[in-house]
Structure formats: structure tokens, C-alpha cells
Design a protein around this nucleic acid. Structure first.
Lengths: 150, 150
DNA sequence: CCAATGTCAGCATAACTGACATCA
DNA sequence: CTGATGTCAGTTGTGCTGACATTG
């Protein structure tokens, strides 16, 4: 293969890496018996506390709008993986809390994620994965050019 | 804040990093005078040769279907940034080639990308960016679990 | 006949914005 | 009144699959 691809920019590389992870996660969730779960669903699960979390708080943690989070929660409720309860501390708020089967699917997702990281360690080496995590885990700040409101 | 917050997994980190890059790129393209250009468009540009490239070849390079690439090229043609020419080597094929203004927008995208990488170097350190690129640039193989057809 | 290419149509996912009612 | 929250509705971006005609 003389056609080396090292002229890829960082954006392409990040997109490729993200797609690698997404495809692997969804395929494993599908194989584990949750064919309807997507990456967006498991992202929402990943930011949900066991005792329940408000939709708007899920939105903030997941980095999406309140409305997007609301729709995803609605789908998870329809799938029987989450429930909406009244927030005892605030009558205008609701808590999204995983059901028993929801928690099972969370476990399946966690297993899939661990498997993917293990697989990646085999492919590119454990040291590379550590360095990757290290760089990604830092505070990248705002991507916007100077003088642009968030 | 109790410690019930699940630590970020690699998928979340990759998604966050990709969104950082995407948001920064689109904001800069917008500010530079191409409000209609999206990440998908610049990805297509990034895999287009100056002398022109077939749609199906663009699809392979960008990692999308022929049909998706076709639609993106159609939009770029409508925006006046690409042209379709007959492929002299094959009457059933066409070459997508950037127009003069298309090449200008490519330059703007390249500048934006370079700026983002520079900015990231300031934020997390040049050594971290190098390690990040190094890990991302390797062959991650297939993300699918064993015994699953691609 | 078969494979590659381009193209048209329809659909799914996952985000967005706008608008509005309710409650603290 | 204002802010936060949830919710409904509509739209956009970006991919997908299926189907088909043309060309090699």
C-alpha cells in the first residue's frame, strides 16, 4: 500500500476514531440483545445517576439541548429502560431514572466499552491508548475563534 | 458533588473531541464567508484531488456510501464550489473538480484546521497533540466483535 | 452476464430552533 | 417578573438502503 494516509488532518482522524468506537459499541449492544439502543442512548445513560437525574441536567452533561435530551429520554421510556418520576424537590421538574432492564443494558454497554478499549490496546498498544486518553481527557477549552460568543 | 458521576469513557472523550473540532471548523468557515459549508463538505474537499476525483472514489476515501458522496457533491456544485466533468477514461464516470472559488474555500478550511491545531497545542501542549495524532493515525482495524461480517 | 458508476427516491438518526405552559 | 424546566412542533444535517440505467 504505497498510498499512505498521513496527510489526514486532526478532524478526519477524530471522526474516524469516533466512528470506530460508535460502530463497535452499537454492534455489540445489538449482539447483546438491545437492537434498538444507539450511541446517543448510551451516552445519556452514561451521564445518568442511579438515583435519577433531571432531563435538563442530562442535557448539560451530555452537551446537547434540553429538547434533544427530552426526546432521547422519551424513547428510552418507550423502550422500558427508563422511568420518569416527579422530583420531590421541585414540582416543575422530573427525574429520569433507569429501570431494572435499563440497568442491565447499562451493564452491557459498559462491558462493550471495556471490550473496545481492550481491543484497541491490542491493536495499537496499551501505551498508545493511555496517551490517547490523556490528551483527550484534558481541558480543550472553547473551539470558537476569538471574539465569538458561545 | 458526590462521586456517583461515572468517569468518562473513551467514546465520550472521542465524541467531545470531535465536536470541539467540528464546532471550531464550522464557526471559522462561517466567519470567513462560507456560511453554508459544513464539516461534511470540507471532509469531501479534503479527499478531493486538484485534478478531479470520481464520486465513488470520494466515497471510499471519506468512508461514506456512494450515494452520500453524490449528494454532498451535488450541494457543492449548487454552491458553485465544484464542477462535474466527464471522465475521459470512462464514459460512465464523472470527475468532481473544485472550482476557483472552491479552491479558495479549501484554503480557508486548511487555514481553519491549522489554526485549530495550533490553538489546541496552546491549550494542552504540543507534545500532547503529537501523541494524540500518533495514536489516532495508527490502524485501529475493525471495531466489530469477532464473528461479524463487515 | 457481471461489476463499477452515477443517480433518484425514501428513510432513520440525532441534532437544532422556536414557542409555550408550569413552577420556584 | 425572571428563570429554569418540561414539552410540542418543525427543521436541518448527515448518513443509510433500495432500485435503476449506463458503461466497461
Amino acid at each position: 500500500m504505497p498510498d499512505t494516509r498521513s496527510d489526514s488532518n486532526l478532524g478526519q482522524l477524530l471522526l474516524r476514531a469516533f466512528r470506530w468506537f460508535d460502530e463497535g459499541l452499537v454492534a455489540r449492544l445489538h449482539a447483546a440483545g438491545w437492537p434498538e439502543l444507539t450511541r446517543a442512548h448510551s451516552l445519556l445513560f452514561a451521564v445518568t445517576d442511579q438515583h435519577g437525574t433531571r432531563i435538563s441536567e442530562l442535557a448539560r452533561r451530555a452537551g446537547v439541548t434540553r429538547q434533544s435530551a427530552h426526546q432521547l429520554v422519551t424513547e428510552l421510556v418507550r423502550l422500558g429502560l427508563m422511568e420518569l418520576r416527579a422530583d420531590p424537590a421541585n414540582k416543575s421538574a422530573k427525574l429520569a431514572v433507569p429501570t431494572v432492564e435499563g440497568r442491565r443494558s447499562v451493564q452491557a454497554a459498559l462491558r462493550a466499552i471495556a471490550e473496545l478499549e481492550r481491543e484497541l490496546s491490542v491493536r495499537i498498544g496499551p501505551d498508545q491508548v493511555i496517551r490517547l486518553r490523556d490528551a483527550l481527557d484534558r481541558d480543550w477549552g472553547s473551539p470558537l475563534p476569538p471574539g465569538q460568543h458561545s
